[in-house]
Each structure stands twice: as C-alpha cells, then as structure tokens.
Amino acid sequence: MNHFEYKGYLGSVKVSVADKCMHGKIEFINDLVNYEAETVEELKKEFEASVERYLEHCKLVGKEPNKPFKGTFNIRIGHELHEKAAKRAEEIGKSLNDYIKDTIKKDIESHA
C-alpha cells in the first residue's frame, strides 16, 4: 500500500532523502492539504489530523469539502470513439454508461 485511507480520503506517502523526512498530501481533491513526519506511524497520524483539520476548516468557512471520488466523471474520447462505443453498447443491449462501467470493471478485475 502506497497510501493512507481515512474517512474516504486517500493520502500519499513520499520520502525525501535530502530532507530526511516523509511527506504527503490528500490526493484526488482540488484543495491542497500537505503533511510531513519522520516515521510512517507519525505520517499516518499527521495525515489523519490533516483530514480532520481540513474538514473542520471547511465547516468553519461554510464550504463543502471536496470528496475524492463522487462516482461520476467526465471523459473526452473524441467523436469517432464515442460513436463506436454508443453503437457497441446498443448492439449488446446496454446503455453507454453501463457499457463503459462494465468495460472498466472487467479491465480492473483482470489486473487485480
């Protein structure tokens, strides 16, 4: 595992040999939240504390916290590929959304 997980947030784990420390940030959000420590245990605690501070700050300023994964995303695949995917989905009796979702799931499971 190359990341921490806490309250639905993922945190990176990086090492700086030059600075002799570990550091990371909350991944997959639009806000920048960093943390650092000298050991993995301390880094995990700092990550969790950073998530808590981030959530508290958002509450304090009346901002909705970013969520790393909402379950939806937009992709740009070009006109030709979009058309081919829509036609293939129709051929097999699926919506385009289900076709794309099933294709991604199949690929991920085959590499797990």
Results as ranks from 00 to 15, higher is better:
M22C: 01
E48F: 01
G11N: 02
Y6Q: 02
L32A: 15
M22K: 12
K25M: 05
G78E: 02
D31N: 15
D107Q: 10
E42W: 02
G78Q: 02
G24R: 12
E46S: 04
I108L: 14
Y6N: 01
N97G: 05
L60Q: 15
E42A: 13
K84H: 02
F4S: 12
K105S: 08
C58L: 02
V51K: 00
N34I: 09
K20N: 14
E36W: 12
D31H: 08
K105V: 10
E48S: 10
V17W: 03
H82I: 04
S12K: 07
S110H: 08
Y99T: 00
A85G: 12
I77A: 09
G93S: 06
I100V: 13
K87D: 14
V15F: 13
F73D: 09
F4G: 06
G8F: 10
H82M: 10
I75G: 02
E36T: 05
E5F: 08
E48T: 04
K67Y: 03
D98P: 11
K44D: 05
R76L: 10
P68T: 11
K67G: 10
I100A: 06
L10C: 06
I100S: 00
F28E: 14
R53L: 11
N74G: 09
L96D: 03
H57W: 02
N34V: 10
E36Y: 14
G11M: 04
E36G: 09
D102Y: 01
F4N: 01
F69V: 05
A112R: 12
C21I: 08
L60Y: 14
C21P: 06
N2T: 13
E42K: 07
K45I: 08
V51W: 00
Y99A: 05
E91N: 07
E83H: 08
P65M: 00
F4Q: 05
K25L: 15
A18W: 09
E80P: 01
V51T: 04
K59P: 01
V40G: 14
Y35M: 08
N97E: 04
E38M: 13
Y6A: 10
G71K: 06
N66A: 09
A89T: 02
S110F: 05
K20I: 08
M22I: 15
K14A: 13
G11I: 00
I104H: 03
Y35E: 04
E46D: 00
E56Q: 03
E38W: 05
V61G: 11
L81C: 09
V33C: 14
D102H: 04
C58A: 03
D19H: 00
I104C: 08
H57Y: 10
V40P: 06
L60A: 04
A112K: 13
I77L: 11
R76F: 03
T72F: 12
R53V: 05
F47Y: 04
E38Y: 12
L55K: 01
A85C: 13
D31A: 14
